[in-house]
Design a protein around this nucleic acid. Structure first.
Lengths: 284, 284
DNA sequence: TCAAAAGTGTTCTTAGTACACCCATGT
DNA sequence: ACATGGGTGTACTAAGAACACTTTTGA
């Protein structure tokens, strides 16, 4: 590497040849993907806009442990792929998509988080555009399903997540504990048939999404190419969990979007101009 | 776990007994700590305040690979400790401190990041108060040293870091590439005798510190119990890399600090009131 | 006396909040 | 006609930026 090293008794090359990688007992490493998207559902009323909701992709486990519980899609990091490649590969296996946003969320490394053995898992958060959804059929006897995600904050640091795919409803309860550091800042009060510590991971992802939507252009990754400003506002409202005032919202995001000449029709009210995003923002 | 599982052919208990954890070839997992502190150096001029600087703790490697280069303190995650415990243990081994702030930074998982073997490393950023520094003597023939850290942004996404411990000067060059995702967003142009990808990790930590100082109370962890507002402002200025206007700065942080009845003396100018921090801010 | 830093006040600009109003559409 | 959402204006408040000035100290 550096000239001075050549002078040492053994060279780096020689050192590497003699290095024994089995010297340390190793944990396994997996990735888990928290995949969000926004879908809309038509309402009965011809005047009303379709209802938009936040959705999360889960897989029903076909094996022990946590058999028949729901889990985040993920898998083991292979020895010849980077952690990111691994997350991306798993994501593609589940969603068949290329055009998506992915960011590393957090690495969960508590000793007892998997009953099988010591597993450290790096979680990723992915956002995919609704127009791109093309869900792969369930593989190896395990079901894949999008769950509508709603959540509410309670008073004493508690935080409930509800996941509903039309058949199954999962209710998870989380607790913030500011006395704790790192991974244990969020504790699972009620796992609600979510496997492993995945309720906690989902909680982390939600918080990350909530925070970053305020100061980045993350939403962009949840929107189709053309969208109305009301649709955009609704996505913000869903993620932030509060209503926004239209005029103020529009002033705030006006530099992020570009007006087009297209309009949405098919509505029992005044047609709405379609917009596009015009830039990205760095987000380290 | 759940009642329905009991009905399955094999129980979870039985499943775990037969589970073979050696089924997958596993990467090794390490932690690396980016440990920052602020030290002050007296100036010759009796009127002037001491100069404050940002420092970073590095270890001189006594072994291949990267022998004689400087590296972040860290080590392997043991099979019976969480990743956070591991980072904390390493931190204590190096600094002997309890009272510190630590947060997970990022997990670096590129395949070729360690020439020995496949190593995934979870990096942590730690902030320690200058009053607490009690540096452990160098262990196992490797030197431990605080490096003064300065940095500058260049035009085309480039970013230079200079580390100086009085004897050795390390110059690292990093490049932001917004086309890339995740770990590869920052590339190493010049490693400057920093081992492995540690220049990149330091770059990540610096960016994190810069960003979070704006919307959290992280600085608190770099300040002594009592401090003047000018000292506090200087710490902000060092980390943000720009000068701030005194009156505006004081208005901005006025709710974070509490006035005390103490004053700093020993100066060739008007004595300065000492303040304390009064609250913490959550920072997920 | 004076350099250095402590400490406060003023003015202008920008961003955020709340609310009120009019417009266009399909049934 | 009318419910629904599209679209814009106004008025107030809070936060941010730039600058100017006074005060206090030790040598």
């Amino acid at each position: 590497m550096k000239a001075e090293e050549e002078k040492k008794h053994i060279s780096e090359e020689e050192f590497l040849k003699n290095y024994d990688p089995s010297e340390f007992e190793r944990p396994s490493v997996t990735v888990d993907n928290v995949i969000f998207s926004i879908f809309e559902t038509k309402t009965g009323n011809y005047r009303k806009n379709p209802e938009q909701n936040l959705y999360l992709l889960l897989i029903k486990r076909g094996e022990h442990p946590f058999i028949n519980n729901w889990a985040l899609p993920g898998g083991f990091v292979r020895i010849n792929e980077s952690v990111e490649e691994s997350a991306y590969r798993e994501l593609k296996e589940e969603t068949n998509l290329d055009d998506l946003y992915m960011e590393q969320l957090y690495t969960f490394g508590n000793v007892e988080r998997d009953p099988r053995m010591r597993i450290i898992s790096t979680a990723y958060m992915a956002l995919i555009k609704p127009e791109n959804i093309e869900l792969k059929a369930a593989t190896d006897a395990s079901a894949v399903s999008w769950f509508k995600l709603t959540y509410e904050f309670l008073d004493n640091g508690k935080f409930n997540i509800k996941l509903d795919n039309g058949e199954t409803v999962l209710n998870a309860g989380l607790i913030f504990d500011n006395e704790e550091r790192g991974e244990n800042r969020i504790k699972i009060a009620e796992s609600g048939e979510l496997a492993f510590d995945h309720a906690k991971i989902i909680g982390y992802a939600l918080m990350r999404l909530r925070n970053k939507i305020e100061y980045t252009n993350l939403v962009f990754n949840l929107m189709p190419e053309y969208f109305t400003l009301t649709e955009l506002q609704k996505v913000y409202e869903i993620i932030l969990g509060k209503e926004l005032i239209k005029a103020n919202f529009r002033r705030k995001i006006k530099d992020l979007v570009t007006e087009t000449e297209k309009f949405s029709d098919e509505a029992g009210h005044r047609p709405s101009r379609l917009f596009k995003f015009n830039s990205k923002v760095s987000d380290i």
